[in-house]
Design a protein around this nucleic acid. Structure first.
Length: 415
RNA sequence: GCGCAGGUGGCAGAGUGGUCAAUUGCAGUGGACUGUAAAUCCAUCGCCCUAUGGGCUCCGGGGGUUCAAAUCCCUCCCUGCGCA
């Protein structure tokens, strides 16, 4: 079980700076955690992520690694870190999110919500009959994105796989409902998440809280708070997950889940974090595409973030700019390097930036790589984008430690 | 020189009398991307305007047939292949 120590707090707010200790190293929080879904940070080597970007930990995905290459292979290799040559702490997401992301959206027409008989069952189906995920109280039936084969995930199964993969921090299997799902469904998903959380805790405990390799702190498990955009649900979920105990075990930290509308991030996080005890770390799942998301999260008590946006946007040609200044009124502090105006721009992506890419390459060159569809473009922009977010959060940490949060916030987010 | 095939929007390539300003792909232009089915997706892509509509120009050049032509006929130019 990890150790978490708070070093300093924001005066007015829930934010704090601390240290998470794991068997594979420490994470100075708040921290931005790059996503390595399939045991790779897309287009980057682990050395780039660690040395050039300065990331402290990475987050991989249970569902994707279960499908390919399979958790046994990762286990045999010595665990996720060994397998991918990542020399630092690691997380795995439980696969719960994939029931949401692979399932058809509520917006396209609510699936069948059957509350009949003894079992609550929700089947999300689609008009075009491409059902990728079905959820009931027991678990989730997935269709493989690789070959279409069916797979069944339960909370127990997810934990079992995550034990085999061997990340330092694993997440409970949860159900992520869309923010625009009706209240009654948000509640159902939340309650199901709670029931699943209990089963995850039991499964984690039944394995004897294994330390990968048998020694050390072992794997830690984070419970996930759901509840959508509703204050009552969020607070209830945080209280339930925060105090959950099964055979004497409780969660080692918490994830805050959901698919957030932009305006909901700050409120949802503050509701949840004000209910959770402050002694355990909190991870905001999937968030951190824009400066304001991170600043608001940190101020409201988030310790770690993960987000695919920096690497995905990089592959699509978008790069962060002006991270060290007030976000422009448009709030989109990024440029699209595929724009014609950059073909002749021989300045770096961000003149203020100290990343490898900005120190060595021009917008014009990267623009050319993008147009030529050369994969180095993804690498160079990914380095820059991740560096931007990782260091923004690092600077936020420094500001908290040095007692100048308000000042720091003021130069990054206009109120 | 003769024969055959062909010349369509930046490129490739459909269409072969009206529903064609012209399918589609690429390129171009702009946008989106938040626990990664994403090196993806969306929009736009002849010119002009009082713009969920209207006008103009357009399918190698010129001429013709027809109510109507990118589509049929004549002619010229050009390209490829074959024969001399």
């Amino acid at each position: 079980m990890l150790k978490f120590t708070i070093k300093s707090r924001i005066k007015h707010g829930l934010g704090r700076a601390g240290i998470i200790e794991t068997d594979h190293g420490t994470i100075e929080t708040p921290a931005f955690i790059p996503v390595a879904t399939k045991a790779t940070i897309k287009s980057l080597t682990p050395e780039m992520v660690k040395d050039e970007i300065g990331a402290q930990a990475i987050l991989a995905n249970t569902y994707h690694l279960y499908l390919q290459p399979g958790e046994e292979i990762i286990g045999k290799s010595g665990g996720l870190g060994k397998f991918m040559n990542w020399k630092g702490p690691s997380f795995t997401d439980s696969g719960g999110f994939q029931a949401f992301s692979l399932g058809p959206a509520f917006g396209k027409g609510i699936g069948k919500l059957s509350t009949s008989t003894h079992e609550r069952e929700l089947v999300r189906n689609d008009t075009d009959n491409t059902i990728q995920a079905k959820i009931n109280d027991d678990g989730v039936r997935f269709k493989s994105i690789i070959d279409g084969s069916e797979h069944y995930f339960t909370p127990e199964k997810s934990i079992e796989i995550q034990h085999a993969i061997g990340a330092d921090i694993i997440f409970a299997f949860d159900e992520c409902a869309e923010p625009n799902a009706p209240y009654e469904y948000q509640r159902l998903a939340m309650e199901r998440t709670h029931a699943w959380a209990r089963r995850c805790l039991a499964e984690h405990g039944s394995e004897g809280r294994p330390a990968f390799g048998g020694v050390g702190l072992g794997q830690s498990i984070f419970g996930i708070v759901q509840g959508g955009r509703h204050e009552d649900l969020r607070r209830e979920s945080a209280r339930v997950i925060g105090s959950m105990e099964e055979n004497g075990l409780s969660f080692d930290g918490f994830g805050i889940g959901g698919s957030f509308d932009k305006s909901d991030i700050g409120t949802a996080v503050s509701w949840v974090c004000s209910e959770l005890g402050e002694e355990k770390p909190r991870h905001l799942l999937g968030i951190g595409s824009e400066v304001a998301d991170l600043i608001l999260g940190i101020e409201n008590g988030i310790d770690t973030f993960d987000c695919v946006a920096p690497t995905r946007m990089a592959r699509n040609g978008a790069a962060y700019t002006s991270m060290s200044e007030v976000a422009p009124p448009t709030s989109k502090n990024r440029i699209n390097l595929t724009n014609a105006k950059f073909t002749n721009d021989f300045s770096p992506i961000d003149p203020q930036c100290n990343c490898y890419t900005c120190k060595n390459y021009t917008r014009a060159y990267i623009s050319h790589l993008l147009r030529a569809k050369e994969m180095l473009a993804a690498t160079l922009i990914s380095i820059h984008n991740l560096y931007s977010l990782v260091n923004l959060v690092k600077n936020a940490r420094e500001a908290i430690l040095e007692g100048r949060w308000d000042e720091f916030k003021k130069i990054h987010v206009k109120d």
